[in-house]
C-alpha cells in the first residue's frame, strides 16, 4: 500500500508519552502541509488557517481522521505507527480539518445531536465530502496518482467523485450522495 508513504521525518521510534498528543505531531503537520501546498485549494486553506490562527493538533488514534473541537481548533487523528499511514491521506485530512473550521463562516453550520437537525448534518457532510472530491481531484491533476481516488473509493464515494469530475451540478451530486448515505 505504502509506495510513497513516509515515516514522517526521521524521528525514529516514537517516545513513550502519557498523553493523547501524537509524538510526531510537528513532523506530521509539517509534511502534510508541505504536500497540501502543492495544490491550489491546499494553498488557500493553509493561508486561511494562518490568517485566522486556527489551532490544528494531532492525536494518536485508530485510523486517519479529523475532529472539530471548537470554532478555531481541530484535531487530526493519526495512528501511532506512521509507517502504516499514507502521507497523502494525512494531507487530505489536514485540508478537510481546516475546511471544517471555515464552514460556519461561509454559511455551512454544524448540527447538534438532535434529530430535527438532520438536514443541517446532511448539508454539512455533503459540503465537506464535495470538498474532499475537489482536493482529491486537484491532487490527481498535479501528480497523476490514483492513491487518494482509491481512498475515496474505500470510503464509498467513487460515484460522487466521478460525478464531481464530470462537472455535475450540486443538485445531481446531492442525489448521488443521498443514495450513498441512504438519506430519505
Amino acid at each position: 500500500m505504502n509506495d510513497v508513504s513516509k515515516d514522517f521525518g526521521s524521528s525514529g521510534t516514537p517516545p513513550v508519552v502519557d498523553s493523547y498528543a501524537h509524538p510526531l505531531m510537528d513532523a506530521i503537520l509539517s509534511e502534510s502541509a508541505s504536500l497540501l501546498s502543492t495544490i491550489p485549494e491546499g494553498r488557500r486553506l493553509l493561508a486561511l488557517s494562518k490568517e485566522r490562527n486556527y489551532k490544528i493538533k494531532v492525536i494518536s488514534g485508530r485510523e486517519p481522521d479529523f475532529r472539530y473541537v471548537s470554532e478555531d481548533t481541530a484535531y487530526l487523528v493519526c495512528p501511532l505507527n506512521t509507517k502504516a499511514v499514507d502521507l497523502d491521506v494525512m494531507a487530505l485530512i489536514y485540508g478537510l480539518a481546516i475546511y471544517e473550521l471555515e464552514q460556519p463562516s461561509i454559511g455551512i453550520y454544524r448540527a447538534g445531536f438532535d434529530p430535527s437537525q438532520k438536514h443541517i448534518l446532511f448539508a454539512q457532510l455533503l459540503d465537506i465530502t464535495i470538498k474532499m472530491c475537489q482536493i482529491v481531484g486537484e491532487f490527481e491533476d498535479v501528480d497523476n496518482s490514483t492513491k487518494l481516488v482509491d481512498y475515496l473509493t474505500k470510503l464509498g464515494h467513487s460515484e460522487l467523485y466521478r460525478g464531481f469530475r464530470l462537472g455535475k451540478s450540486k443538485e445531481e451530486l446531492t442525489k448521488i450522495y443521498s443514495v450513498i448515505v441512504n438519506a430519505v
Partner: peptide, 11 residues
Amino acid sequence: NFSSLPTFSMD
C-alpha cells in the same frame, strides 16, 4: 461524545 455530529469516540 454526542455534543455535535458526527459523534467522536475513543476506545
